[in-house]
Protein backbone atom coordinates (compact mmCIF):
# COMPACT_ATOMS: atom_id res chain seq x y z
CA UNK A 1 0.00 0.00 0.00
CA UNK A 2 2.57 2.49 -1.16
CA UNK A 3 0.04 5.24 -1.84
CA UNK A 4 -0.93 5.22 1.83
CA UNK A 5 1.28 6.66 4.53
CA UNK A 6 2.14 4.11 7.27
CA UNK A 7 0.06 5.81 9.92
CA UNK A 8 -2.89 6.01 7.52
CA UNK A 9 -2.68 2.30 6.92
CA UNK A 10 -2.43 1.81 10.69
CA UNK A 11 -5.55 3.91 11.23
CA UNK A 12 -7.49 1.78 8.78
CA UNK A 13 -6.43 -1.49 10.37
CA UNK A 14 -7.16 -0.14 13.82
CA UNK A 15 -10.57 1.14 12.77
CA UNK A 16 -11.54 -2.25 11.38
CA UNK A 17 -10.29 -4.03 14.50
CA UNK A 18 -12.09 -1.63 16.83
CA UNK A 19 -15.35 -1.76 14.87
CA UNK A 20 -15.26 -5.55 14.62
CA UNK A 21 -14.67 -6.02 18.33
CA UNK A 22 -17.26 -3.41 19.22
CA UNK A 23 -19.83 -5.28 17.11
CA UNK A 24 -18.96 -8.85 18.06
CA UNK A 25 -18.53 -7.99 21.72
CA UNK A 26 -21.86 -6.23 22.08
CA UNK A 27 -23.92 -8.60 19.90
CA UNK A 28 -24.85 -11.17 22.62
CA UNK A 29 -25.91 -8.44 25.04
CA UNK A 30 -27.70 -6.65 22.21
CA UNK A 31 -29.73 -9.73 21.29
CA UNK A 32 -30.57 -10.43 24.93
CA UNK A 33 -31.71 -6.89 25.74
CA UNK A 34 -33.61 -6.63 22.45
CA UNK A 35 -35.44 -9.85 23.32
CA UNK A 36 -36.23 -8.61 26.83
CA UNK A 37 -37.60 -5.34 25.47
CA UNK A 38 -39.57 -7.08 22.71
CA UNK A 39 -41.09 -9.99 24.61
CA UNK A 40 -41.09 -9.32 28.34
CA UNK A 41 -42.93 -6.92 30.55
CA UNK A 42 -41.00 -6.16 33.71
CA UNK A 43 -40.50 -3.33 36.19
CA UNK A 44 -37.61 -1.11 35.16
CA UNK A 45 -38.25 -1.77 31.49
CA UNK A 46 -38.63 1.93 30.73
CA UNK A 47 -35.39 2.62 32.58
CA UNK A 48 -33.49 -0.06 30.66
CA UNK A 49 -34.90 1.21 27.39
CA UNK A 50 -33.86 4.79 28.19
CA UNK A 51 -30.41 3.69 29.31
CA UNK A 52 -29.83 1.78 26.07
CA UNK A 53 -30.94 4.72 23.95
CA UNK A 54 -29.19 7.42 25.97
CA UNK A 55 -25.96 7.44 23.87
CA UNK A 56 -28.09 8.11 20.80
CA UNK A 57 -29.37 11.44 22.14
CA UNK A 58 -26.56 12.57 24.45
CA UNK A 59 -23.62 14.56 23.04
CA UNK A 60 -20.93 11.95 22.23
CA UNK A 61 -18.43 13.96 24.23
CA UNK A 62 -20.60 13.47 27.33
CA UNK A 63 -20.73 9.71 26.74
CA UNK A 64 -16.94 9.67 26.30
CA UNK A 65 -16.43 11.66 29.44
CA UNK A 66 -18.73 9.38 31.47
CA UNK A 67 -16.80 6.38 30.15
CA UNK A 68 -13.58 8.05 31.20
CA UNK A 69 -14.98 8.64 34.70
CA UNK A 70 -16.22 5.04 35.05
CA UNK A 71 -13.62 3.05 33.10
CA UNK A 72 -10.55 5.28 33.55
CA UNK A 73 -7.68 3.89 35.58
CA UNK A 74 -9.02 5.61 38.67
CA UNK A 75 -12.67 5.14 37.81
CA UNK A 76 -14.58 2.64 39.97
CA UNK A 77 -15.11 0.04 37.22
CA UNK A 78 -11.79 0.64 35.47
CA UNK A 79 -9.77 0.29 38.67
CA UNK A 80 -11.61 -2.90 39.64
CA UNK A 81 -11.19 -4.47 36.18
CA UNK A 82 -7.46 -3.72 36.17
CA UNK A 83 -7.02 -5.10 39.66
CA UNK A 84 -9.05 -8.27 39.10
CA UNK A 85 -8.40 -9.16 35.47
CA UNK A 86 -5.64 -6.83 34.32
CA UNK A 87 -8.01 -5.34 31.73
CA UNK A 88 -7.30 -1.72 30.92
CA UNK A 89 -9.54 0.47 28.77
CA UNK A 90 -8.06 3.92 29.26
CA UNK A 91 -6.05 5.18 26.26
CA UNK A 92 -5.96 1.71 24.69
CA UNK A 93 -7.62 0.40 21.53
CA UNK A 94 -9.89 -1.68 23.79
CA UNK A 95 -11.24 1.56 25.17
CA UNK A 96 -11.95 2.73 21.63
CA UNK A 97 -13.85 -0.52 21.04
CA UNK A 98 -15.83 0.02 24.24
CA UNK A 99 -16.71 3.59 23.29
CA UNK A 100 -17.79 2.47 19.81
CA UNK A 101 -19.83 -0.40 21.25
CA UNK A 102 -21.68 1.94 23.59
CA UNK A 103 -22.39 4.37 20.77
CA UNK A 104 -23.50 1.66 18.34
CA UNK A 105 -25.55 -0.27 20.90
CA UNK A 106 -28.84 1.66 20.58
CA UNK A 107 -28.85 1.20 16.81
CA UNK A 108 -28.14 -2.51 17.16
CA UNK A 109 -30.78 -3.10 19.85
CA UNK A 110 -33.38 -1.14 17.93
CA UNK A 111 -32.96 -3.18 14.74
CA UNK A 112 -32.93 -6.53 16.55
CA UNK A 113 -35.86 -5.59 18.73
CA UNK A 114 -37.98 -4.71 15.69
CA UNK A 115 -37.01 -8.04 14.09
CA UNK A 116 -37.98 -10.02 17.19
CA UNK A 117 -41.24 -8.13 17.51
CA UNK A 118 -42.01 -9.12 13.92
CA UNK A 119 -41.75 -12.83 14.79
CA UNK A 120 -45.28 -14.17 15.30
CA UNK A 121 -45.51 -15.08 19.00
CA UNK A 122 -47.92 -17.84 18.04
CA UNK A 123 -45.08 -19.63 16.25
CA UNK A 124 -43.28 -19.61 19.57
CA UNK A 125 -46.41 -20.96 21.25
CA UNK A 126 -46.66 -23.70 18.65
CA UNK A 127 -43.06 -24.69 19.38
CA UNK A 128 -43.84 -24.76 23.10
CA UNK A 129 -46.78 -27.13 22.62
CA UNK A 130 -44.40 -29.40 20.71
CA UNK A 131 -42.23 -29.69 23.79
CA UNK A 132 -39.67 -26.92 23.32
CA UNK A 133 -38.63 -25.19 26.55
CA UNK A 134 -38.41 -21.37 26.47
CA UNK A 135 -34.64 -21.51 25.83
CA UNK A 136 -35.11 -23.89 22.90
CA UNK A 137 -37.96 -21.82 21.53
CA UNK A 138 -35.64 -18.84 21.52
CA UNK A 139 -32.78 -20.71 19.86
CA UNK A 140 -34.79 -22.63 17.26
CA UNK A 141 -37.62 -20.25 16.44
CA UNK A 142 -37.09 -16.64 17.56
CA UNK A 143 -33.40 -16.35 16.72
CA UNK A 144 -33.47 -17.86 13.21
CA UNK A 145 -36.57 -15.90 12.25
CA UNK A 146 -35.07 -12.64 13.51
CA UNK A 147 -31.74 -13.31 11.79
CA UNK A 148 -32.07 -10.71 9.00
CA UNK A 149 -32.77 -8.07 11.66
CA UNK A 150 -29.84 -9.25 13.74
CA UNK A 151 -27.55 -8.95 10.73
CA UNK A 152 -28.90 -5.48 10.01
CA UNK A 153 -28.35 -4.48 13.63
CA UNK A 154 -24.79 -5.75 13.59
CA UNK A 155 -24.01 -3.88 10.38
CA UNK A 156 -25.50 -0.67 11.75
CA UNK A 157 -23.37 -1.06 14.86
CA UNK A 158 -20.28 -1.75 12.75
CA UNK A 159 -20.89 1.30 10.58
CA UNK A 160 -21.50 3.49 13.59
CA UNK A 161 -18.31 2.15 15.19
CA UNK A 162 -16.28 2.98 12.07
CA UNK A 163 -17.49 6.56 12.17
CA UNK A 164 -17.48 7.13 15.92
CA UNK A 165 -15.40 10.13 16.84
CA UNK A 166 -16.60 12.22 19.78
CA UNK A 167 -16.84 9.60 22.50
CA UNK A 168 -13.69 7.81 21.36
CA UNK A 169 -11.45 10.88 21.29
CA UNK A 170 -12.78 12.03 24.66
CA UNK A 171 -12.33 8.62 26.31
CA UNK A 172 -9.09 7.31 24.77
CA UNK A 173 -7.61 10.38 23.04
CA UNK A 174 -5.95 10.32 19.63
CA UNK A 175 -2.81 8.21 19.87
CA UNK A 176 -1.45 7.04 16.48
CA UNK A 177 -1.16 3.27 16.40
CA UNK A 178 -3.20 2.77 19.59
CA UNK A 179 -6.40 4.78 19.49
CA UNK A 180 -6.22 6.79 16.27
CA UNK A 181 -9.06 5.43 14.15
CA UNK A 182 -9.96 6.73 10.67
CA UNK A 183 -12.14 9.62 11.91
CA UNK A 184 -9.50 10.67 14.46
CA UNK A 185 -6.82 10.51 11.77
CA UNK A 186 -8.92 12.60 9.39
CA UNK A 187 -9.47 15.09 12.17
CA UNK A 188 -5.71 15.24 12.81
CA UNK A 189 -5.04 15.81 9.09
CA UNK A 190 -7.50 18.66 8.88
CA UNK A 191 -5.69 20.35 11.76
CA UNK A 192 -2.42 20.44 9.78
CA UNK A 193 -1.86 22.72 6.71
CA UNK A 194 -0.49 19.91 4.55
CA UNK A 195 -3.08 17.30 5.49
CA UNK A 196 -5.64 17.72 2.70
CA UNK A 197 -4.42 14.82 0.58
CA UNK A 198 -4.28 12.41 3.53
CA UNK A 199 -7.74 13.44 4.72
CA UNK A 200 -9.11 12.87 1.22
CA UNK A 201 -7.49 9.41 0.92
CA UNK A 202 -8.93 8.29 4.26
CA UNK A 203 -12.30 9.76 3.39
CA UNK A 204 -12.45 7.72 0.19
CA UNK A 205 -11.42 4.61 2.06
CA UNK A 206 -14.10 5.21 4.74
CA UNK A 207 -16.70 5.50 1.99
CA UNK A 208 -15.44 2.28 0.37
CA UNK A 209 -15.56 0.33 3.64
CA UNK A 210 -19.07 1.57 4.40
CA UNK A 211 -20.32 0.59 0.96
CA UNK A 212 -18.69 -2.82 1.28
CA UNK A 213 -20.30 -3.42 4.70
CA UNK A 214 -23.69 -2.46 3.31
CA UNK A 215 -23.25 -4.78 0.34
CA UNK A 216 -22.22 -7.70 2.54
CA UNK A 217 -25.17 -7.19 4.88
CA UNK A 218 -27.53 -6.96 1.93
CA UNK A 219 -26.12 -10.21 0.56
CA UNK A 220 -26.45 -12.01 3.88
CA UNK A 221 -29.99 -10.78 4.45
CA UNK A 222 -30.93 -11.86 0.96
CA UNK A 223 -29.45 -15.30 1.43
CA UNK A 224 -31.45 -15.72 4.65
CA UNK A 225 -34.56 -14.42 2.93
CA UNK A 226 -34.07 -16.76 -0.02
CA UNK A 227 -33.65 -19.80 2.23
CA UNK A 228 -36.82 -18.82 4.04
CA UNK A 229 -38.91 -18.31 0.95
CA UNK A 230 -37.25 -21.05 -1.09
CA UNK A 231 -40.57 -22.06 -2.55
CA UNK A 232 -42.84 -19.14 -1.76
Amino acid sequence: MSWLAPDEWQAIQLSLKVALWATVGSLPAGVMIAWLLARKRFPGMLLLNSLVHLPLVMPPVVTGYLLLLAFGRRGPIGAWLEEQFGIVFAFRWTGAALACAVMGFPLMVRAIRLAIEAVDPRLEQAAATLGASPAWVFLTVTLPLALPGIIAGAVLCFAKALGEFGATITFVSNIPGETQTIPSAIYAYTQSPSGDAGAMRLTLIAIAISLLALAISEMLARRVGRARAASA
Binding site: Q125, A128, T129, L130, G131, A132, S133, P134, W136, V137
Partner: peptide
Protein backbone atom coordinates in the same frame (compact mmCIF):
# COMPACT_ATOMS: atom_id res chain seq x y z
CA UNK B 1 -45.78 -25.17 31.49
CA UNK B 2 -46.95 -25.90 27.91
CA UNK B 3 -43.76 -27.69 26.85
CA UNK B 4 -44.13 -30.23 29.63
CA UNK B 5 -47.82 -30.99 29.13
CA UNK B 6 -47.46 -33.34 26.19
CA UNK B 7 -50.57 -31.92 24.60
CA UNK B 8 -50.36 -31.42 20.85
Amino acid sequence: PPHQRRIG
